[in-house]
């Protein structure tokens, strides 16, 4: 029986989000909240391993109360249990404070059911750092394996896992002791449409919800904004370069001007033409 914990995050759909041009901040109201797309692959991989080896998949997230819907989405994919840690004191966390809080939640989950494997997404589309996964691994003192694009074997009896880690020009096969943490690539699997029974289960599901006070041995100073070493000091629109010259005239005239620009760089094309 493997116990796999997937770490997930609810994020604003950055593709739809609008910026407030006056304040240069994100107008979160304009963006629907979704399960971080990378984390869907983390949950899917956990579920596949569960089907292969037998076990239980728990998902954990730190976020505001609406993050329950992201957990439900994971239940649809096939997760068994969901845990949300939510508290004003978590707000404003950077990656260091996030990995601290999520670790505390995992430690609590592990009290009732020891954890064999943790799976994170490659990155969150709003935080966009990929730092939280390795951070959690370090805090739990287990090996972090990033860029995982294939799980070859999990051997719980002998306590090891073998995975492929994507490299710039191929991959490496790595063996690690269990428990360990994977950050998985999007290419590791495809998330299929959820089967109906899972949808029904998800609709009825309520996750476990914990505040800071429900966690154990928490050092409040390491949470949220206070526990975050990095601060955003300045947000600015990138300086607008003078802008290019817009070519005038009808399409044919425009293309003609463009052509003369290109032909000034004739050597680039001649190389290809072998002239």
């Amino acid at each position: 029986m493997l116990h796999i914990v997937a770490c997930i995050k609810q994020v604003p759909d950055t593709k739809i989000i609008k910026m407030n041009p006056k304040t240069n901040t994100m107008d979160r109201r304009t963006a629907p909240a979704i399960l971080n797309p990378y984390d869907a692959h983390a949950v899917e991989e956990a579920v596949r391993l569960k089907h292969k080896y037998g076990g239980i998949v728990s998902v954990v997230t730190m976020g505001p109360p609406p993050a329950v819907s992201a957990i439900k989405k994971c239940i649809e994919i096939g997760a068994d249990e969901g845990y949300l840690i939510t508290d004003r004191r978590f707000a404003g966390a950077d990656t260091l404070a996030t990995s601290y809080a999520v670790t505390k939640a995992i430690e609590k989950i592990a009290k009732t059911r020891p954890v064999d494997l943790i799976i994170c997404g490659k990155m969150s589309i709003d935080g966009d750092t990929g730092q939280v996964g390795p951070g959690i691994a370090r805090r739990l003192d287990i090996p972090p394996l990033t860029s995982v694009n294939k799980v070859v074997e999990i051997n719980q009896e002998e306590g090891y896992a073998i995975v492929h880690r994507k490299l710039e020009d191929g991959y490496e096969a790595v063996r690690s002791t269990l428990p360990c943490l994977f950050s998985v690539e999007k290419t590791i699997n495809e998330v299929p449409y959820s089967p109906l029974p899972n949808m029904i289960k998800a609709a009825r599901y309520t996750p476990q919800i914990w505040s800071v006070d429900d966690l154990e041995g928490v050092d409040i100073t390491q949470l949220g904004l206070k526990g975050s070493p990095t601060i955003v000091s300045k947000v600015w629109a990138p300086p607008k370069p003078a802008g290019g010259s817009i070519l005038e005239g009808n399409p044919r005239a425009q293309v003609e001007q463009l052509l003369s620009v290109l032909l000034e760089k004739k050597e680039l094309f001649e190389a290809k033409e072998g002239v």
Binding site: D94, L96, T129, G130, Q131, G135, R138, E168, P229
Partner: peptide
């Protein structure tokens, strides 16, 4: 900000601990 650089920096930042700005 390569896969190796990001992997290493994330781990080191947690242990030191210190802030780490990505990308």
């Amino acid at each position: 900000a390569t896969s190796t650089g990001k992997d290493l920096a994330s781990a080191v930042a947690t242990d030191l601990p210190t802030g780490l700005t990505a990308d």
